[in-house]
Design a protein around this nucleic acid. Structure first.
Length: 270
DNA sequence: CCGGACGCCTGTCGGC
DNA sequence: TGCCGACAGGCGTCCG
């Protein structure tokens, strides 16, 4: 489900409700997520949540006293705030009760998500330390992307979805960015010239920024932390669509790349 | 190093 | 109605 805009939307929704709250109770109903939830997470009962941050698609909970949590939503995960007294819904694997009567609920039908603990610098965690730059940060520009594309023979779509190159671009936003940039998703990365790389860099930033403004994309069950859907789905040009291209009217196409669906317009993307 | 395939899970949908 | 395959917003791991 969640790509960078959905994770950032979640972070922004939760932040004012979580920061400075104290963890009163940690209930792990299903510890078997992508990796088992560490049992030692119970040691964090009573601790204060100091900061809620994001790196790529990971949420970072910085706790009082140098411990942290990494929370990844996988394909179908979502985090919501509900009164602690409310009964757990189906697939609600984790519940964190706070000191104000509210509780954080993690629901994840497919269980591809993860909740991990660590101590010290979260950016040094093995899952984070090789990640590429944030697409909305200064380090992600045309010079950088061009350098990373130079020796890559694979399709440009795979390259922009590679978290070592740039974080947060999943299947939806890769398709949408390539449409905006007018680049065919199967183009070998090394064969894309400077001007097109510049267009692609701008397109990725634009698509992600607009999606965040719209509260992310809700296709099926993604909800923001307050239960509302995200509205970017209305602005998708190609992802999940069939029929005429909204720009040129030619029939949109669906192909498979790396076992994932790719949507594009054969008229607008070369 | 790169690239591609696999598997982890559950739910939904379309076709027969 | 039931069954079966395809597909779904991710990504670490394995193998060549």
């Amino acid at each position: 489900m969640p790509e960078l805009p959905e994770v950032e939307t979640t972070r922004r929704g939760l932040q004012p409700h979580l920061e400075q709250r104290r963890i009163q109770r940690i209930s792990i109903r299903q510890p078997r997520l992508r990796w088992p939830v560490p049992e030692t997470i119970q040691d964090h009962r009573g601790r204060r949540i100091e900061r809620l941050e994001r790196r790529g698609k990971y949420l970072i909970f910085r706790l009082e006293d140098e411990d942290y949590w990494l929370w990844h939503l996988g394909m179908s995960g979502s985090l919501r705030l509900l009164p602690a007294s409310e009964a757990a819904a189906r697939h609600e694997h984790v519940q964190i009760d706070l000191d104000d009567g509210q509780s954080l609920r993690y629901r994840d039908p497919r269980r591809f998500g993860a909740l991990l603990t660590g101590r010290g610098d979260p950016l040094a965690h093995e899952l984070l330390h090789r990640l590429g730059p944030e697409p909305l940060g200064d380090a992600f520009d045309a010079d950088y992307l061009q350098a990373r594309c130079r020796r890559r023979s694979s399709a440009i779509k795979q390259v922009i979805m590679d978290s070592r190159v740039v974080v947060g671009v999943g299947n939806i936003y890769a398709c949408e960015s390539l449409f905006l940039a007018g680049i065919h998703p199967g183009t070998r990365a090394s064969r894309i010239g400077r001007e097109r790389i510049e267009r692609l860099t701008r397109a990725i930033r634009q698509v992600l920024a607009e999606a965040i403004e719209q509260g992310g994309t809700t296709l099926r069950d993604f909800t923001r932390s307050d239960g509302q859907p995200g509205y970017f789905a209305q602005q998708l040009n190609v992802y999940g669509r069939q029929g005429p291209c909204p720009r040129c009217g030619r029939a949109l196409r669906r192909i498979v790349q790396a076992q994932r669906s790719t949507y594009y317009c054969p008229g607008c993307q070369h």
